[in-house]
Computed example of a mutant assay.
Amino acid sequence: MNKNIQNLAGISVKPVRRVIGLMSGTSFDGLDIALCEFRGSGLGTDIKVNNFVTRDYNSDFKEDLKSVFAKKFADLEKITLLNAVIGSYYAELILECLEEWGISPSEVDLIASHGQTIFHAPKHQHRMRGYPNATLQIGDADHIAMKTGIITLSDFRQKHIAAGGEGAPLAVYGDYLIFSSATENRIMLNIGGIANFTFLPSAHSTGFFSSDVGPGNTLMDQFVQLKYPGRYYDENAAIASAGTVNTDLLKALLDHPFYKAEFPKTTGPELFSLDYLNDAMRRSTQHNLSNEDIMATLAMFSAKGIIQAIVESVKGRGEFEIYMSGGGMYNPLMVSYIEQYFGRKLKFTSDLGINPDAKEAVLFALLANEAVAGGSTPFGDRPGVPTVSMGKISFPQ
């Protein structure tokens, strides 16, 4: 037997597997690195997060990512180079963390790398006849595996598309396995660049699903980066809190077929871009708004998309709780809009034992654990939730 296959087979039957989960989102904040211990698989999975950190990206690297992100026309040479650069850079950051944590790479069984999304193109968005759903994440995993000496799983979204999905959101798998409750209906709300949620009805019902709901931080971040050079986001919603929501602009922002499409659905900054904002301002004839008013309206726009999706998904399903994760949970204005509508304080995944900052990295670590040691849990093979094993394997030798 090939040594790599033999090693992988041994990992699959270990009572405890150590897996590093990596996540880098569309906000380009940095790389989330979560070192997890897994016992079991499927609904019997026991997870312990031993270490977690976010390694901030420097401004030059962020600009490199922005130069090829969500653009129909980008520098192909730059994309090719960044594919290798990102993989190698991730490996360096992992090795730095392991040294700080006093852990040898040989003590880690697997790495699960989401990669860096540079374009997401579901059919309903690109509308090109004869072309399928598609998505592209770069950051080659062979570079990670070779440099760290650790088996690496990556490119999880491609299998989801091959099985009939749109490549996102993948959180439904981990949310169902980790956060399902026998007694409580739960909304697992992740507010990243794009906001998505998983609806988990009580008693492990087959009615669970996950969907994108529209922009979370992405439009606000893009506007801040345009109008306030050197700033990447509206810290503590300071700009937006100084403004007033413009109802005409808000109505125009919400007037798009995406918001009328059935669940599940996906989207990205390819749609919700500054061009989208400018078009809404043109249609609403709101050309002379202050930056503060635009930001306040964008915060409400993100909140409204989230609220509408949750209301529709829980209609007739009884009481529920909302558990937040993602960078948007630090936007107090957007969160307050959501809380005011539902008349309650939102909870965090930390209330269920998982650091909300680490959640996405942990979920990809779980997908790697399932690919190697699980795969027997049925997910119903419904639209958006095919029962498949995800992740391509890169060996270190």
Rank of each mutant, 00 (worst) to 15 (best):
K159H: 06
G192Q: 02
E100G: 11
H160Y: 05
T247R: 06
A237T: 13
A121G: 13
L271W: 04
L31Q: 02
H204A: 11
R344S: 05
G25S: 03
I5E: 09
S394T: 12
G149M: 11
L136A: 10
S88Y: 09
I310N: 01
M23G: 03
Q125M: 14
L22T: 07
F73T: 06
K14G: 07
V314P: 01
A74M: 11
G343Y: 06
T267C: 04
A371R: 01
D155G: 01
Q397I: 06
F208S: 02
Q137W: 02
N288P: 06
M324C: 11
K62H: 08
V49A: 11
S376I: 11
Y259F: 14
F209S: 00
L249A: 10
K251D: 15
C97V: 14
E370I: 04
S302W: 00
I118F: 06
G139C: 03
A309L: 06
Y259S: 12
D275S: 12
Y89R: 13
I151N: 01
K3G: 12
L76K: 12
F320W: 02
L153V: 10
L298K: 03
A182C: 12
I310R: 01
D275Q: 15
Y259M: 11
G375W: 05
L98H: 07
S210Y: 05
G102C: 11
V388C: 08
A163W: 07
E235P: 06
L93N: 04
V224P: 00
T267L: 04
K71P: 00
V388Y: 05
F156W: 05
I178W: 03
G165N: 07
D56M: 08
D155S: 06
I103H: 08
I239V: 15
P15W: 07
N190F: 00
Q222E: 15
T244A: 14
F258R: 14
A296P: 05
Q6K: 13
G193Y: 00
F379S: 03
S113H: 10
D175G: 06
V314R: 02
F156K: 00
G10T: 03
A309N: 07
N217Q: 08
F301K: 00
S336D: 14
G326I: 03
F73A: 13
E262K: 15
A309V: 13
H287W: 09
I118L: 15
P105C: 09
R282Y: 10
S302F: 00
D46M: 14
Q286I: 06
V311L: 14
K14P: 08
Y176W: 15
I20R: 01
K260D: 02
F301A: 01
P229Q: 07
S67F: 04
E262T: 15
D351M: 13
K66P: 05
T206D: 09
C97S: 13
R17N: 08
M1A: 10
P332F: 09
A162I: 03
G216I: 08
Q116D: 13
L170H: 04
L153F: 14
P264N: 15
K71A: 06
I33K: 00
L136S: 06
